[in-house]
């Protein structure tokens, strides 16, 4: 990558300060410049970076330097702690309804990975002994329904569809009814990709929402997203009130700063991480791992943990 480890840079900036008892303002300012750059290079939104850096500054100035650490390491520790807090400290899962069927709706921009993720979730949920049903509510993208049917076939989960001539709201409603009469205890609604500024299509999602009352509206976000992630997440959350986020394509080499942006503007948990095109490639999201990935400093952290 273009970018050398933040930890290394910080160590270099601050190595001369070794042996000091406290972190002073000047140390912090020097370090924060590097932190800011690193986060921006990782595509964390500018505003989010600013707020974050100010918070870390406050906490870092005057902090005691632990016996075992240098001021540089101490600052890295604070940065990582704060980042982990921002990413969400606990792992969150799907909230299954006590009155099945649990209704899950996947939404997001075009090409984010909704349909594929729908298949992955269906597989995961099925393994937990449930009987999921996939609902094909994307009538716009060429062959979207076929795609979901293929994916459903691969994970051996039924797919409800009414072709592409019916209204997605009606499809979702009929799908829910079908699930109830067939004893499916979870439904996963695959919706068409859309722009957050497309009022008509955002209205369609609102209408689906009010008709099938989802327990989980999950925003699917491509982890390679840049500065615009905040706009996207803000709009989807405002219009729909999302319950969580799924981050896709983490098998790439992106730092994934979008995770932080999305989390900061919605305050909703990132529930799953998708790591490939195969239908097993999904896992529960680990906020702490993501924090170190964004900073690009897994190794140093494990050193600090040992210290």
């Amino acid at each position: 990558m273009v970018f050398e480890g933040l930890a290394e840079k910080l160590q270099n900036t601050l190595h001369k300060l070794k042996g000091k008892g406290k972190v002073n303002e000047k140390d912090v300012n020097d370090a924060m410049r590097e932190v800011k750059m690193a986060l921006l290079e990782a595509d964390v939104n500018f505003k989010v970076v600013k707020d974050f850096v100010n918070k870390v500054k406050e906490r870092a100035i005057g902090a005691e330097v632990l016996e075992s650490l240098t001021p540089g390491q101490q600052i890295i520790k604070i940065v990582n702690d704060e980042l982990t807090i921002l990413m969400g400290t606990t792992q969150s899962k799907i909230n299954f309804s006590s009155k099945p069927p649990t209704v899950i709706m996947l939404v997001g921009l075009q090409g984010a990975g909704k349909t594929t993720t729908g298949g992955k979730l269906a597989k995961l949920i099925k393994k937990q002994g449930k009987r999921p049903l996939l609902i094909a509510a994307d009538i716009y993208r060429p062959a979207a329904i076929k795609q979901l049917q293929v994916v459903g076939g691969q994970v051996d989960v039924p797919v409800f569809s009414m072709g592409d001539k019916q209204n997605p709201v009606d499809i979702a409603k009929a799908g829910l009814e079908h699930a109830i009469s067939n004893g499916n205890d979870v439904i996963i609604v695959d919706t068409a990709g859309r722009l957050h500024i497309d009022d008509e299509l955002m209205g369609e999602l609102q209408s689906i929402k009010s008709n099938i009352k989802p327990h989980e509206i999950l925003l699917v976000v491509d982890s390679m997203t840049g500065q615009d992630a905040v706009n996207v997440a803000e709009h989807f959350n405002e219009k729909l009130g999302i319950d969580g986020v799924i981050l896709t394509k983490l098998d790439g080499d992106t730092r994934g700063g979008a995770a932080l942006s999305v989390r900061a503007v919605t305050n909703k948990p990132i529930k799953f991480a998708a790591l490939g095109e195969k239908l097993d490639d999904i896992e529960i999201f680990h906020p702490d791992r993501m924090a170190s990935r964004i900073l690009g400093m897994g190794d140093v952290l494990s050193l600090i943990e040992k210290a």
Binding site: M1, V2, E41, A42, D43, L109, G111, D222, M224, T225, G226, Q227, D228, V232, G252, D253, T254, R255, G257, A258
Partner: peptide, 11 residues
Amino acid sequence: LDATTGQNAIQ
């Protein structure tokens, strides 16, 4: 390239 993509597009 997707215009929504951040710095990873360079890579």
